[in-house]
Write a protein that binds this DNA or RNA. Structure first.
Length: 267
DNA sequence: TACATATGATCAT
DNA sequence: TGATCCTATGTAA
């Protein structure tokens, strides 16, 4: 479930459990054993996120860099949960235990490395909030690529993934293929505002919910069961929540994308 | 059992 | 663009 909101939530949850505490760190899988040994028994002093990257700082200067990728998970588990051999990293303090599996990145880095990582990332809406809007607007105006590709570009903005991209474009009524430099200023502003708003909500709820109050009535009436928290993502062939058309699926920047042909017209 | 799929990113071609 | 890495889950056979 890793888009930016997940990682910020994760950073906050790990902070609560481990910051200012001595942490037991092991690698049941073995692939991170040497590094885990360097953290074992050391205090975590800070836990933060930038886009989809997680950084946990330790008292001895080490920084744990985690990127979950597509399938990685870092979850709180029962202390007695068996340490299975897919667990790259296990962190424990008193009754709190966390297991990291399937990460794309799990490494110890230095402060300089951390700067390098961050320098390659665009602004994170959850860190800069509405202040990031003008920069975003400017960067969009300079690019000709489709907005649906741009939103996944972590160098333009950090933290958006495939679910938010589809949902943001739906809420803003923008066709995914629209070239960035054809996006009006007011649309770019709207996009940024929705981005900040949805990511904040996602972090709070620890899941992606994009449905707005005004649409809740329609949704109940139409389609009781499935996926009632999203407008477009993975809803191919189903009724649009705001018009009689059906959501369609296509491919953009190597990933599937969904949109409503009526609510998101080509310009 | 096997296969497809997944909220990602990188590297090769 | 396609192959590849990492793991878990759901569906098909």
């Amino acid at each position: 479930m890793p888009e930016g909101h997940t990682i910020h939530r994760l950073a906050a949850d790990l902070r609560k459990d481990f910051v200012s505490k001595r942490v037991e760190a092991t690698s049941p899988q073995g692939r991170f054993a040497e590094s885990a040994a360097l953290l074992n028994g050391i205090q975590m002093i800070k836990s933060e996120a930038w886009g989809k990257h997680l950084f946990c700082h330790w008292e001895n200067g080490n920084i744990l860099h985690v990127h979950l990728g597509l399938i990685g998970k870092f979850r709180k588990v029962d202390r007695d949960d068996p340490p299975r051999d897919t667990i790259r990293l296990r962190l424990v303090h008193e009754s709190s235990a966390w297991h990291l599996t399937g990460p794309q990145t799990c490494a110890l880095i230095t402060e300089d490395d951390l700067q390098d990582v961050i320098n390659k990332l665009g602004p994170d809406p959850l860190r800069v909030g509405l202040r990031g809007m003008n920069k975003f607007k400017k960067r969009l105006g300079e690019s000709k690529k489709p907005i649906g590709a741009a939103l996944l570009d972590q160098n333009l903005l950090a933290g958006i993934g495939n679910v938010y991209r589809a949902e943001l474009l739906f809420l803003c009524g923008i066709h995914p293929e629209t070239p960035c430099n054809k996006i009006h200023d007011y649309q770019a502003e709207e996009l940024w505002k929705w981005t900040v708003d949805l990511l904040r909500r996602g972090k709070k709820l620890n899941r992606i919910v994009t449905i707005q109050d005004e649409d809740k009535g329609t949704i109940k009436a139409k389609n009781k069961k499935r996926n009632n928290s999203l407008y477009a993502y993975k809803r191919a062939g189903l009724d649009c929540r705001r018009c009689p058309d059906e959501i369609v699926i296509s491919k953009l920047a190597g990933r599937s994308i969904w949109h409503c042909p009526n609510c998101q017209k080509r310009t």
